[in-house]
Design a protein around this nucleic acid. Structure first.
Length: 183
DNA sequence: TGCACGATGAAC
DNA sequence: TTCATCGTGCAC
C-alpha cells in the first residue's frame, strides 16, 4: 500500500474524484485498522459550485475546504450522519471530493454504501475533521497494482436545490460494482 | 438569539 | 412518503 502524496489531491477536483475510485481509505482507531476500497465519489468544485458547502464562502465550517489539499472535511448532516470528503486543489479553492461508498476490505462492520453508512463503518466522526490525510492513522492509499476501471458518470445525489449545478455529472462510480449506493 | 434546513437512511 | 435530530448560516 502506498499512501497518496499531497500532489495527488492538488489537482483538478474531477480528476481526483475519478482517480480516488479503487483506492483504499484507511483509519486506525484503538489499534484496529479499518480499510475500505473506494467505489463511489462526488466532486464539489469550489465556491462557484452552488451544490458545494464552500459556495457559502469561508465560515467556521467551510474553512477546511478552503485550506490546503490532502486534508479531511467531515461534517454532520441531518443531525445524525457524518460525511467524509478529501480537500482538493490549491489552498483557497474550496473544493473537495465526497466519498459515497466503500467495498469492505478489513475490519468493517455493517453497510458501507452511502456517505453516512460509510463513515459509521469506518468510525469517522467530527473529531476527524481537518485531519491530515498524510498522517499515519487516517489516509488514502493505492495498492501499487492498479487495474484499469470502467467509470460511470451521473448527476450528484441530493443537490436538487443547486439549479443547473444539480444536473452536472460529477458523481463517479465503478461500473457494475455491487457496493454502489444507488442506481 | 432564534429558526429553517440539509452532500442521509430507515421505516412505513 | 415520512421522519429522526442537530450544527450551521442567516435573518431579525
Amino acid at each position: 500500500m502506498h499512501k497518496l502524496p499531497r500532489s495527488f489531491y492538488a489537482r483538478d477536483t474531477t480528476e481526483v474524484a475519478r482517480d480516488l475510485l479503487g483506492k483504499y481509505l484507511v483509519h486506525v482507531l484503538d489499534g484496529v485498522e479499518r480499510v475500505g476500497r473506494i467505489i463511489e465519489a462526488e466532486a464539489y468544485l469550489g465556491a462557484h459550485d452552488l451544490a458545494a458547502h464552500s459556495s457559502k464562502g469561508i465560515t467556521a465550517r467551510t474553512k477546511v475546504m478552503f485550506g490546503p489539499p490532502g486534508f479531511s472535511y467531515v461534517y454532520l448532516i441531518y443531525g445524525m450522519h457524518h460525511c467524509m470528503n478529501a480537500v482538493t486543489e490549491n489552498e483557497g479553492h474550496g473544493s473537495a471530493v465526497l466519498l459515497r461508498a466503500l467495498e469492505p476490505v478489513r475490519n468493517l462492520e455493517g453497510k458501507t454504501s452511502g456517505p453516512g453508512l460509510l463513515c459509521k463503518a469506518m468510525g469517522i466522526d467530527l473529531r476527524l475533521n481537518a485531519h491530515d490525510l498524510l498522517s499515519d492513522d487516517f489516509y488514502i492509499a493505492d495498492s501499487g497494482a492498479e487495474e484499469p476501471l470502467t467509470i460511470v458518470e451521473r448527476p450528484r445525489i441530493g443537490v436538487d436545490y443547486a439549479g443547473e449545478w444539480a444536473s452536472r455529472e460529477l458523481r463517479f462510480y465503478i461500473k457494475d460494482n455491487p457496493w454502489i449506493s444507488r442506481k
